Amino acid sequence: KQIIIQQLPLVMITTSEDENPYAIFETLNERGLQLEESDLIRNHVFMQLSLTEQDRFNDEHWMPFEQKFEETDDYSGVDLTEFYRDYMMRTGEYVQKNEIYHQFKRRTSEMTPRELVDELSYYGDLYLWIQRPETAPNEELTNALRRLQYLEIGTAHQLVLNLLYRWDSDDLSIDELLETLHGLESFVLRRFICGRSTRGYYRTFPIAARSIEDDDVKGSLFAYLKSQGWPDDTELLDNILRFDMYNRDKKKTWLVLRTLEEQFGHREPVQYDELTIEHVMPQTIDDNEWGDEWKAMLGDEWERIHDQWLHALGNLTLSGYNPELSNRPFDEKRELLMESHVELNGYFEECDNWTEKTIRERNQELAERLASIWRVPQVDD
């Protein structure tokens, strides 16, 4: 503590009434002070105001805008710098992370501070729908945006922002918007299962936004995404046979299983927050009575079967009895699964055993259902 007090220099700069502190701040920053891009943008905006305007503008306009992104009791804070970047890329122009401030200055040079904060506040509201889906204006959109969160595609936020603006401006109907967001789901999920690289997404999605044609938003966007490699059913079904879905990404696995369950059309709402992902063939086969039963059921190649199929879609389901199920033998697991009221588990009623053959069969059935839910849309070449 004493070393910090003795060696940490403190500089106080006093300005006269006719000096703009924001201009002095920018001059100092040009000499090497490392700050967030959002701090530099704020400073730039205030430099456009006279000294007598700054306090009022801050209280009435700027602070209410920035406070939208702050942490609340219900939500974590949202990064302002990332918002500025996605805001600028929404029309398809790529912005490097170290160029956010300079690009912002260039692209907003014709706007007054008031015009700018009004536009930022408007797009900020749309952006927060993406980050906080529960704040979206209707339930269908909330569900669609929440699903995108499970896919963890932050690189597509500028594209989604573009689409939300088009809907809010009445250029897209709600049905068209939902179809477009679902298509984005399909593109990302199919590529995930087929092992396609995500490395280029940081360029793919801004270009996708630029590719949109005003008179055919959905068709033009889907045509572009298809040109970037949208796996067809043959590739999807082939890859899912040997895909360790749970091991690769638990959030995407949850999205798939929940969506498969929702397709049954429950009369009463399902409490999904009470369900967890369950491995039918357990994650651990021990050297005990339960383990011996599993080894006998799986056969001489039980180790290979366990390694190959453990995390496959066909071996996964949803249950509220995860602790009780544990590593129990299949007969006991089946009884508990049938009590869970999860429609996915109705499959096990007719299963007398759980072997490589039955896991493969269920894997194929679920894969075909997955392909029918997340389709590749037909688009004009």
Rank of each mutant, 00 (worst) to 15 (best):
V78S: 03
D125E: 15
S173A: 01
K97R: 11
V117N: 12
N98F: 12
L116M: 03
Y94H: 14
E99K: 12
H157E: 14
V95L: 01
P113M: 02
H157G: 10
D118H: 14
R90D: 02
N138M: 14
T155I: 08
T112I: 06
Y150Q: 15
E110F: 12
L151P: 07
Q131P: 11
Y84L: 05
K97A: 08
L161T: 06
L116K: 03
V78M: 02
G92D: 10
E110L: 09
R107K: 10
N98P: 04
R107Y: 07
D79P: 09
E99F: 12
V78H: 03
E99S: 08
Q131C: 07
K105R: 13
M89P: 01
W129N: 12
L172D: 01
R146D: 05
W129M: 12
L141K: 05
P133C: 00
A136C: 10
G77M: 06
N162F: 05
Q103I: 04
L128E: 06
H102Q: 14
L116A: 06
Y94M: 13
L145G: 05
R106E: 15
E119R: 10
Y101E: 13
E134L: 14
R147W: 10
L141A: 00
T108M: 07
L172G: 01
Y127G: 05
L80H: 01
R132Y: 09
M111S: 05
Y127R: 07
E140M: 12
L163K: 01
L120I: 10
E152S: 13
R132L: 11
N143Y: 15
Q96W: 14
Y122C: 09
P133W: 05
D168P: 10
L159M: 05
V160M: 04
A136L: 02
R90M: 06
F83V: 03
G92Q: 09
G92R: 00
Y150F: 05
T81N: 01
E140H: 13
Y75F: 12
R146W: 09
E134V: 15
V117L: 05
W167Y: 10
P133D: 00
Q158F: 15
T142E: 15
Y84N: 01
R106C: 13
S173K: 12
R106T: 13
Y84D: 03
Y127P: 02
L120K: 07
I153P: 09
T135R: 07
E93H: 13
E110M: 11
Y123H: 07
T142M: 07
I100G: 02
T155M: 13
F83P: 02
Y150S: 13
L148D: 03
R90T: 04
G92L: 04
R106K: 13
R85A: 04
N98K: 08
E152H: 14
D86P: 09
D118V: 14
Y84W: 07
M89R: 00
D74C: 09
E119F: 15
